[in-house]
Each structure stands twice: as C-alpha cells, then as structure tokens.
C-alpha cells in the first residue's frame, strides 16, 4: 500500500479554520433538525438510527446463537438421549449431563431408550459457540434467539431441563423454532483437500509400518540411554 498523503502546508482558508467550522456547523444543524422532526413522530421507533429497547426491538437474524432450548420431536417426546457429546465438545466445559435408562411407563416422554436425568448448562461459563448444537447426534439442543439473560444470582443463570423445555415452548409459540444447525461442507472442499495434500506425485500411498523390528530397536536405544 502506498504511503498515505499527509498534508503539511495548509492554505489560508484552512488555517483560519472558521470556514471549516461553519461547514461543520451546517452539517450538525441538518442532523439536529432532522432528528427533532423525527422525535415528534408516533410510536417507539421515532429516530431511525436508534432501537429504543425495551419497547422497540431489533429483528434478530435467524441463525443468531442465543439461549439454548431442548427440542421435542413431532410427537412431543424429548430427543435428548443423554449421550454427553455436547458436554465433551463444549470448549468452556459448562454442560453437565447425567445419563440413565428410561424407566418403565415413561416411554412416551422420551424418544430414545436412555435419557439425560440431570442436564445443566451453566450460562455464566457458556460462550455461545454452538458446538453443542453441531455435535448433538439427535439435534436435541438448539441455540435460540433469547438474549435477555441477566440475573441477580448464580442460580438464576443455570439452565436446567425445565428452563430448556420452557424456552422450547416459548420459541414454538412465537414461531422462531428452527432445527439444529449442522456444519455444511463448502462446495468442492473434498477435491480441494486432495489437490493440496503434501504427498508428492509418484510416492507410494502405503502407510508406514510400525513393525516389531522398529519397536525392538527403539527399546534397545532407550535401554542404552539410561
């Protein structure tokens, strides 16, 4: 990039500054008049730039990663089987899952043979990355659109199963329910990976063998080193 031009010598008009000052005043006056007129309009969204929370809420993107919810299938049974994939993949280690077999008589509540007896997401640790949503094999946990998460105590920020199901009900009622987002491979990614792989042409594609001979040699060397 070329070095930016810095103006070193100012003309008389610029160094007096009054002309620039007047131009600036005219600009701010225009903004002022526009906004005064706008502020007399009806409704919460008066000034176009500002979203006056809490009356006026900005539309949220459909893929926004907000408060979690636990999904039910079409017949109303919980999809979560308590496998613990979400807990394993979580970077902040904020999910605790406890798993047990579905007891007799409750098969209409749970879709699988096992369920998560205790499921807790600690919102104070969560970084809202969405890995749990991507990792879940059943698509049971989905990050929804809730962003009003503040609470007075630590307990108010723990998402237990009841709160997760409640979020599902609220999302369903407001029509913002969506299935779990899974990572989509970029078109042509497989071919690109092969083309740029480091193995040169003509080299054998056989895997190197860790034979017993190699292992014995390594042991001998370790024994000599001590």
């Amino acid at each position: 990039m070329a070095k930016p031009e810095v103006q070193k010598n100012y003309s008389l008009k610029d160094s007096i500054y009054l002309v620039e000052l007047l131009k600036g005043l005219v600009l701010t006056w225009k903004h002022f008049i526009f906004n005064i007129g706008a502020s007399f309009r009806k409704g919460p969204h008066t000034i176009p730039t500002t979203w006056q929370y809490p009356e006026d809420r900005r539309p949220i993107s459909p893929i926004f990663r907000g408060e979690h919810m636990m999904m039910l299938d079409e017949t109303g049974r919980e999809l979560c089987v308590g496998c613990g994939m979400c807990a394993k993949v979580c970077p902040a280690k904020c999910i605790t899952v406890d798993n047990s077999k579905v007891p007799e008589g409750q098969e209409d509540r749970y879709a699988g043979k096992t369920y998560s007896k205790n499921f807790n997401i600690d919102l104070l640790r969560c970084i809202f990355c969405g890995f749990c949503e991507e990792a879940c094999p059943k698509g049971a946990i989905v990050l929804g659109q809730g962003y009003e998460l503040a609470a007075y105590t630590h307990e108010g920020c723990q998402l237990g199963k009841d709160r997760l199901l409640e979020n599902y009900k609220k999302a369903k009622a407001s029509g913002t329910l969506k299935p779990a987002l899974k990572p989509v491979p970029v078109a042509g990614a497989a071919q690109k990976a092969e083309a740029t792989s480091a193995v040169p042409e003509g080299a054998s594609k056989a895997k190197p063998e860790v034979t017993k001979k190699v292992l014995k040699k390594a042991e001998k060397k370790a024994g000599e080193g001590e």
Partner: peptide, 10 residues
C-alpha cells in the same frame, strides 16, 4: 437533548 439530536439518538 441537543447533543443527542445532533448525534442521531433520542
């Protein structure tokens, strides 16, 4: 209020 009106906010 004047500052706010100049800065496009309420």
């Amino acid at each position: 209020r004047g500052a706010a009106m100049i800065q496009d906010r309420p």
